[in-house]
């Protein structure tokens, strides 16, 4: 019995941003993240027959993506010597004490915890955006995250400015509610 169906045509619009944020938290590189998302879509296409419809499309894609990320780390770690720590501090006059400087804590740096929190927040926000109706989500993303001008968005979607603000208002209200539930 399959309740969930699969439709690759909508993948890029629906899931690419979510998957991308999920990946970038884990690999920390834009280019690599893009490639991994693309590979995930391809792999999904290949194994479409095996999709049983028990999970949602997104969950299924995420599980593929997780494999891809693990594969990625396997690949870079098998390049010999990369994991080695090189130490080349010498004790001759000028460079003496360099190691000390490297180990001084930087109080202005964000601590690791707040960084992780921020990254998870990104995923949470995309989760909420995913729940918006598609047009609302697109416009909200363009306006809020990519920072397009009102006029530019109006042209793309062929709507008036007040129309846009109504859509933004609905999106923001829904977002606030969703984040209130899942994050704050």
């Amino acid at each position: 019995m399959s309740i969930n169906t699969i439709n690759p045509d909508t993948w890029v619009d629906k899931y690419s941003d979510y998957l991308f944020n999920f990946t970038i938290v884990r690999v920390n590189d834009k280019e690599i993240a893009q490639d991994l998302v693309q590979e995930t879509f391809f792999a999904g296409l290949k194994s479409m027959k095996n999709f049983k419809g028990e999970a949602s499309e997104r969950t299924w894609l995420i599980s593929i993506l997780k494999r891809k990320i693990i594969d990625h780390y396997r690949k870079i770690n098998s390049n010999k010597g990369k994991a080695e720590v090189r130490i080349n501090y010498t004790s001759d006059g000028e460079t003496e004490g360099d190691w000390l400087e490297e180990r001084v804590a930087d109080p202005f740096d964000q601590n690791a915890e707040s960084e992780i929190e921020n990254k998870e927040l990104g995923v949470a926000i995309h989760n909420c955006i995913g729940k918006l109706p598609e047009k609302q989500a697109q416009i909200f993303k363009m306006k809020t995250i990519e920072g397009f001008d009102t006029e530019a968005i109006c042209n793309v979607f062929d709507i008036t400015a007040s129309n846009l603000w109504v859509i933004i208002h609905r999106a923001r209200t829904a977002m606030a509610e969703c984040l209130e539930k899942n994050w704050f």
Partner: peptide, 8 residues
């Protein structure tokens, strides 16, 4: 703003 969201 603080989440530093990225989109493709």
């Amino acid at each position: 703003k603080t989440s530093n969201l990225q989109t493709l």
